[in-house]
Amino acid sequence: MSTAETTSAPTQAPRKINIQVLGPIIALVVLVIVGALMNSNFLSYANVTNVLARSAFIGIIAVGMTFVITAGGLDLSVGSMAAFIAGLMILVMNYLLPSMGNGVPIILVGMLAALVAGLAAGFLNGFLITNMRIEAFIVTLGTMGIYRSLVTWLADGGTLSLDFGLRQTYRPVYYEGILGISWPIIIFALVAIAGEIVMRKTAFGRYCAAIGSNDQVARYSSVDVGRVRILTYILLGVLVGVATIMYVPRLGSASSSTGVLWELEAIAAVIIGGTMLKGGFGRVWGTVVGVLILSLIGNILNLTDFVSPYLNGAIQGVIIILAVILQRGRKAEG
């Protein structure tokens, strides 16, 4: 449904715009067909749910990243932030276990801790970028190092493990779901739909695009530029918290290698989806398609022996560059 809306919005030079809009979708469809032809298991229920559930973490984060990038920002810290929040969440739950006992309440407290930590971390990034006027790249490069180091320190160089009993209680959040759809997929879908609506249908979404295009114009148009910018980072932080909530039950542990390179995968998904890296134009559904494309490439390489899975990164890299070349085509037109 969202696709139909997009095609009707920019009508200038329709033929070219359509290629821009449809590009990521066509790429996704081609990947699905290639995958199905190469391996009969590709479209099996087990494989599809597996791919989608694994995409969910990056996907949820990438939806938040779409807003940050659309508003002309960038956040390199999300992978480290996820690891730090995971570690924090595990420590909080383990700490409260003797007093609260095992059960749903302690899991909920852990989840709340993750959301609050995400909110605080996002606010910190946003505050430093907006109020202290430091480049987003520099601020989040700094916090990226800080969170990564903090989680290593908390784990004392090793791994933070959730209590075994708690792990059993928490496990269903990743491994179960309703109607055969696991929770991570459901949450990812809900976040994506909500994100699409916010981007397209609210003043906040419009402000993000306006600020990313030209923050001076936004300022002169009575838009509270600083507030909108901070909110994008807070939104991203909270979504990192949500992604972590879905991630911790999968392995029940966190270490310094948790969430490595998530930031780059999230940014790549956003770019492949057609959002402009320099801001001013973003689409959440495109980001979702971008996430799926990246996951499917890895999955197909794993399922077939046609190309070595070690070349996964190379193929993803080619796709990112191709996406940017397509973007430039659109810019030259406008």
Binding site: N214, Y220, S221, V223
Partner: peptide
Amino acid sequence: SRGLVLNMGLRENLTL
């Protein structure tokens, strides 16, 4: 550079 977002549509600019 301060009045209109040149790469946005007329409607988006009008109501900003």
